[in-house]
Design a protein around this nucleic acid. Structure first.
Lengths: 232, 232
DNA sequence: AATACTTTTTCCAAGATTTTAACACAATAT
DNA sequence: ATATTGTGTTAAAATCTTGGAAAAAGTATT
């Protein structure tokens, strides 16, 4: 097997150097990023095995970085942060982080946690090779960039429309119930949510089916819910 | 899915109580052990989903417990220890632990780490691809996608028709009484329901037997009910 | 504060599904 | 053979669901 590739996201140069020299000394390959945007870019283009992420980045909240990456990947993310409050840890872990270390951290502990993470990965070595780009017919979704295209033309989608589209795309071919969809988007399922859902479906369809000849991306299953069908 | 079962290994009664009441309040099932020997016994006999392990046990070193359990199981082990030295953490993690919390710990953090662990476990077990697909002759039902096919052509079924088809399919070869069927579909069994049932059977048959030469998926058993027969 | 944009609510015609009713025919019992 | 009961089929009626317009409410931006 190949050497483990680690993406180090840290804007403080000295700390970053400490980490990279340590990694190099212990036979890891690594990439670096100094801010959230490049972190997401590197993560989507190089598919690292593990990500070490500092929460205090200059351009965006680290939590947002976790959320973005989790939209397409299950790569282990270990947070390394100066914030030691419980609430910070809880928020990061619930956003999708796998582990949380507070600075100043012990290099030995970091290495041990890396080994533990590697060991765990080796167990379930299935890795469905999730790409950060989804394609179906003329529709294309770039999860890492957070935008969708219809034959090279970018779709202007509102946040909920985008979420909805991703949900349907991730379950291509499956019929999703109203309840499942509303649960995923609003976190609950009240009477009115289904009415809202219908409106969003209508606008989404208007945007999607604008350019396609007859093709129907979203199908209704009366009394059940909706699904995205495979095209071509 | 079932509630997560957690084995709590802790010899200090008050701490153990704190943990178990917390777990109970958050909808976990749990087992307890006060020493290493019973911990290993419980782990092997009940196959918990996660183990919370205190390193300071009366009868043996917690590290030994980790090693023993790791000889046969990859169950996630989260250490909860008073020892906060790096070397302790490194030793435990390298012995096979998945995470390490030092006392006194925040209950919220523990819960967040449990959620993170559960999430990680759930990743690997996504859809063994088959299992949720039923096949009989030219008929195919994809339960997880919620749709049915007759020789690659999708059947357009209303919710009740689909339910009915699934009910028959799941009891392939068995005769189902009218009462059993109506109970399953409407939750009750009134006089009129059997009349409705006949109508649904008719439409279902029309859709099913359209494409098959002579084959009869659904058989009538006069005075009793219906059954789906195995084809080919 | 004004503006643009997004989300939610309300409504109803159009559409789809389910139920009911009617009748011919098949099976069974007397 | 005849009566009785059960079944398949069709069509209309009743009911429920959906799409989309339009307005109201809520947010973000300038």
């Amino acid at each position: 097997m190949n050497k483990t590739l680690i993406l180090v996201v840290e804007d403080d140069k000295p700390v970053q150097n400490l980490m990279t020299t340590t990694l190099k000394a212990h036979d890891y390959r690594y990439l670096t990023a100094m801010n959230g945007e490049t972190a997401i870019l590197e993560a989507s283009s190089h598919n690292p095995d593990i990500i070490l992420l500092d929460l205090g980045l200059p351009d965006m909240d680290g939590i947002e970085v976790i959320r973005k990456i989790r939209t397409w990947s299950n790569v282990p993310i270990i947070i390394i942060s100066a914030r030691s409050e419980d609430t910070d840890k809880v928020e990061a872990l619930d956003a999708g982080a796998d582990d949380y270390l507070t600075k100043p951290f012990s290099v030995e502990e970091l290495l041990a946690r890396l080994r533990a993470t590697e060991r765990r990965m080796a167990v379930g070595q299935t890795e469905p090779i999730s790409s950060s780009i989804f394609v179906n017919g003329k529709l294309r979704i770039d999860y890492s960039a957070g935008c969708a295209f219809l034959e090279d033309e970018e779709l202007h989608l509102t946040p909920i429309e985008y979420k909805l589209l991703c949900l349907l795309a991730k379950n291509l071919g499956k019929v999703l119930t109203h309840t499942y969809i509303t649960q995923n988007i609003w976190g609950h399922s009240w009477e009115n949510d289904v009415a809202s859902l219908r409106v969003f479906m209508a606008t989404l369809r208007k945007k999607l089916d604008k350019n396609t000849d007859g093709a129907q991306y979203i199908q209704t299953h009366v009394g059940i819910g909706y699904r995205m069908t495979r095209i071509e």
